[in-house]
Amino acid sequence: MIPLEYFLILGAILFAIGAYGVATKSNAIIVLMCIELMLNAANINFVAFGAYHPDIMGQVFVIMTITVAAAEVAVGIAILLNAYKMRKTTELDEDGLTSMRW
């Protein structure tokens, strides 16, 4: 059986990649995808702990998370689409969507 640490390290790496993407990428779609990466990193941890610590709740929670994530992406993409229609850009820098602040 694969040791638990492996799953945790995989999750940590995925989370770090996601966080890095959110913090550095200027394209809003990539940022959204990075957020999905971070959510899935958390899901791996849920499933791993659920398997090693016999408890069905881990998997149940993952299904819940996936549902919420799907809804969240749908809303996020919808907002982005509208923003794109108005601004013809999905960049998050000063020339792009950031100018909509205040």
């Binding site: 959110v22 913090a23 940022v31 950031t98």
Partner: peptide, 16 residues
Amino acid sequence: SKMQTGNVHDYTAVIL
């Protein structure tokens, strides 16, 4: 209010 830059990256950095 100037602290609210509107820049997603700044917010992310602060959260992280």
